[in-house]
Every structure is written in structure tokens, then in C-alpha cells.
């Protein structure tokens, strides 16, 4: 029954990757797949290249901090197909002690700055990223401000003019 409710996107994804797709749901019409982080590049390449899926537009990439859960972090990919007019949300959990996930820049080159932002705010490292440094904050900033355990009242030192 659950399989029938699933859209073609999730059916093809689970059919191809099996147990590497940990969980799926289509609540309120939003196709969502939780996948294992080790195969994220393979999964994204499949989503982009499969003739029935054609996810050619990577709309967004964000991080989520589930403080207290294990694994702690989550990377969320929002994908859209301009050709097929459908969407999917792909999520992958990343543990705190090893916050590394493969970069999807080889799949969608536009993910460059989104990955830098996720690194900037959450400290998630994207393996293979060509220029993984802070994008919104400045280099002297210490810590990752959108982590739930970042102190609300913490202030960074003011940096002076730089050459």
C-alpha cells in the first residue's frame, strides 16, 4: 500500500538503491527520501540522468541540526525537474564526530555556494569541494552559529581593517 502511494520518483529510487534509501514518505505530496550519506553522489547522478526523473535543477541545499539525536546533522537537497515538473527532497544524516559528506558539485555545479553556506553555518564538511571556506561570515569567525549549542549571547571579536 505504501508503495502504491509513493510517486514514480521514490519508486525508482528505492528500486535502484534498495536499502541505501533508509526511509521515504510523500506526506502532503512532498516526495522525501532519507538516504545513506555514502552513496549521495551516486544517488544524485541517478536522479539527474534517469530519463524518467531528469532532476536538472538543484534548487537548494541546507543543513539541519538535530541536537540530541544520533546522527546529529542532516543535509537536505531540494531538487526540481524543469522537464518533468516534479520535485523531490533528498536527506542524508551526518554524525557529529565525522561531519563529512561527498560534494555534489560534480553533479550540479551550482551547489558550490550552497555547500559553502552549510559549512559556514553548521560545520558540515563536503569532501571534494574545490573551495570550501566561509561564504557569509568572515574568516576570523570561530564556531558555527546555526548549531543549536552555539551560545546565543556569544560575541566574536571585532576585526580591524585588513590589507
Amino acid at each position: 500500500m505504501a508503495e502504491e502511494r509513493n510517486s514514480i520518483v521514490l519508486q525508482k529510487l528505492t528500486g535502484r538503491f534498495g536499502s541505501d534509501v533508509v526511509a521515504t514518505h510523500s506526506d502532503f505530496g512532498d516526495d522525501t527520501a532519507l538516504v545513506r550519506r555514502e552513496r549521495i553522489v551516486e544517488i544524485c547522478t541517478f536522479l539527474r540522468d534517469d530519463p524518467d526523473l531528469r532532476f536538472d535543477f538543484a534548487m537548494d541545499l541546507t543543513g539541519v541540526d538535530y541536537l540530541g539525536e544520533e546522527p546529529r546533522f542532516e543535509v537536505v537537497y531540494h531538487l526540481y525537474s524543469l522537464e518533468k515538473k516534479h520535485r523531490v527532497r533528498v536527506k542524508a544524516r551526518v554524525p557529529e564526530e565525522d561531519p563529512v559528506i561527498d560534494s555534489v558539485i560534480p553533479v550540479w555545479v551550482g551547489m558550490d555556494w550552497f555547500e559553502r553556506e552549510a559549512y559556514d553555518m553548521y560545520g558540515i564538511l563536503f569532501r571534494g569541494h574545490p573551495n570550501l571556506k566561509r561564504i557569509l561570515l568572515y574568516e576570523q569567525f570561530e564556531g558555527y552559529p546555526l548549531r543549536k549549542d552555539y551560545p546565543k549571547a556569544r560575541r566574536q571579536p571585532t576585526v580591524g581593517p585588513q590589507e
Binding site: L137, Y138, T158, V159, G160, P161
Partner: peptide, 13 residues
């Protein structure tokens, strides 16, 4: 913001 502060400081200088 903190990223803008060095720019403003330099303009003031």
C-alpha cells in the same frame, strides 16, 4: 555587522 565593521572603520580612517 562584523564583516562590514572593518570596511566602515577604514572609511572613517
Amino acid at each position: 555587522n562584523y564583516k562590514m565593521a572593518p570596511v566602515l572603520q577604514r572609511i572613517h580612517d
